[in-house]
Design a protein around this nucleic acid. Structure first.
Lengths: 158, 158
DNA sequence: TATAATTTGTTGACATATCAACATTTTCTA
DNA sequence: TAGAAAATGTTGATATGTCAACAAATTATA
């Protein structure tokens, strides 16, 4: 049965979206054990990697989300006392965000468990060349970003 | 530089989620030209493929979304006169959903343009073996579904 | 067959996401 | 350097998504 390239392109796109949906749902179930959403985890994780405080606009760029969305996510994380915010003295428009000790402790607890979940998820899957697989994903992402830029100015996100 | 398997697993997971996010955003920009969201398009598209009417629960299963979410999506599509709903006579609990002629016309207009967008997105990317790439995505999805089932009964979704 | 369990769809509460509009502050430029 | 333009974060409107609880209908089972 002959399949042309375009058939595969379309199937790959649909499958990519579907797999991501399923993985997101899977991680949602996992993080709910800690009373967190995946988006909340992503913020904590990013703050953990960046020892220094980050501004909200930096968070929004790294997480590919609109800056107005960060406001609400941080409000809920602040309520849970996992992060703190304080005005930036150098640039009075900006807010600096940091993990609290409580937030740091939580991330330290979750990370190894999450890596383990990911390992269990992938361990039986045969990927001939993982680095090539990763590279293709990177290329698809780059291509999508380029094409988006031609459609619309992405000012708000970057 | 040696990279162990677990490094790749984690990187692949993160990249998959990120690529899907970018592709979703890309498609959101595209569909907004037609005053549709990607989720709304998915419903119209599924109804288009199924010549006969579908129930809401069938839609929710195919689209991996909770049945309560379908209610709102259909309400908005009904307002736009792109679909119609009528009670199912055989099973009085169920609602049958169908495209209106207007909805069918819209889908007919969008589909070739969308396939073209997808083609442009992928055409410069070198994928040695597209069918293998697709297969790996399938396997990741299956694995995630299995693991989700062990975490939580997925009754609501299937 | 009577009743218990399940299925279908809706509602209301809430989290997550976008956008436009706004105030404040900073940066650019004429 | 004064005024225009851009950047940062918040708010309110709206869409998308989950879940729990509900009513109505169907299916299973004792």
């Amino acid at each position: 049965m002959y399949r042309n390239k375009q058939f595969y392109y379309y199937e790959i796109l649909l499958k990519l979206l579907r797999v991501a949906d399923t993985l997101w749902e899977r991680s949602r179930l996992f993080f709910s054990k800690f009373n967190l959403s995946p988006s909340q985890f992503n913020i904590l994780n990013l703050l953990y990697e960046n020892k220094n405080a980050m501004t909200q606009i930096e968070l929004s760029r790294r997480l590919l989300t609109h800056r107005s969305n960060i406001t609400g996510l941080l409000r809920r994380l602040e309520t849970k006392k996992l992060i703190i915010r304080r005005g930036c003295r150098v640039d009075k428009r900006a807010t600096l965000v940091k993990l609290t000790p409580r937030g740091r402790t939580l991330i330290n607890k979750i990370q190894p468990e999450f890596r383990n979940i990911v390992y269990e998820l992938f361990k039986d899957i045969e990927i001939t060349d993982p680095s090539e697989f990763l590279q293709i994903l990177e290329n698809i992402e780059s291509s999508a970003i380029d094409k988006s830029k031609s459609l619309k100015n992405l000012k708000n996100k970057s």
